[in-house]
């Protein structure tokens, strides 16, 4: 009986480990490194960016997503984007993405800033936090694994929580 249970536990651990992982101490490298793709220029003529997919591990970790949510408020992202509904800045919970919806696109937008008001946060926010915010931003439009998504916050609810009934729009 016991070996059976143990085996089951081990198997389950393979499936669950990442979502519950909590990185409580971050290396200095994670604070400085600026993203998966290093580019030469901020603006590039011609075709849009090639879609290079970067795996943002923060998207798979509930803790990181929750940190993203906290930082989103702490760094005053909601000042312009509100709670994802948009205001001075564009809405983040709808389907349209001006600069692409992939993690590296969003990451780059945060690092580099964009015309018409989006400041550059590169060097101001540690890189790992940018990835966390990226993950959270993507979670607002349901682009991350649902099981890891953040819960509702203990604040006024100005948007529908990631995990709640969606048809109430």
């Amino acid at each position: 009986m016991t070996p059976l249970i143990l085996t089951l536990c081990l198997l389950a651990s393979l499936a669950s480990c990442r979502r519950e992982q909590r990185q409580l101490r971050h290396s200095p490298q994670a604070s400085t490194r600026t993203g998966g793709i290093v580019r030469d220029a901020e603006l590039q003529p011609g075709q849009p960016w090639p879609e290079v997919t970067v795996r943002n591990v923060s998207e798979e970790r509930a803790w990181d997503l929750n940190e993203g949510q906290r930082l989103y408020r702490a760094y005053n992202c909601n000042g312009c984007h509100a709670n994802g509904g948009g205001g001075m800045g564009p809405a983040l919970m709808d389907e349209s993405w001006i600069y692409g919806s992939h993690p590296e696109n969003i990451h780059d937008v945060i690092v580099e800033g964009r015309p018409n008001g989006m400041p550059s946060f590169g060097g101001k926010i540690p890189d790992y936090q940018i990835w966390e915010i990226t993950a959270y931003v993507r979670s607002m439009s349901g682009l991350v694994p649902k099981l890891a998504a953040t819960g509702r916050t203990d604040h006024m609810q100005t948007k529908i929580s990631e995990q709640s009934k969606k048809e109430e729009k």
Partner: peptide, 8 residues
């Protein structure tokens, strides 16, 4: 676990 990030 502190919320202040490392600053290299």
């Amino acid at each position: 676990g502190v919320l202040m990030p490392p600053n290299p």
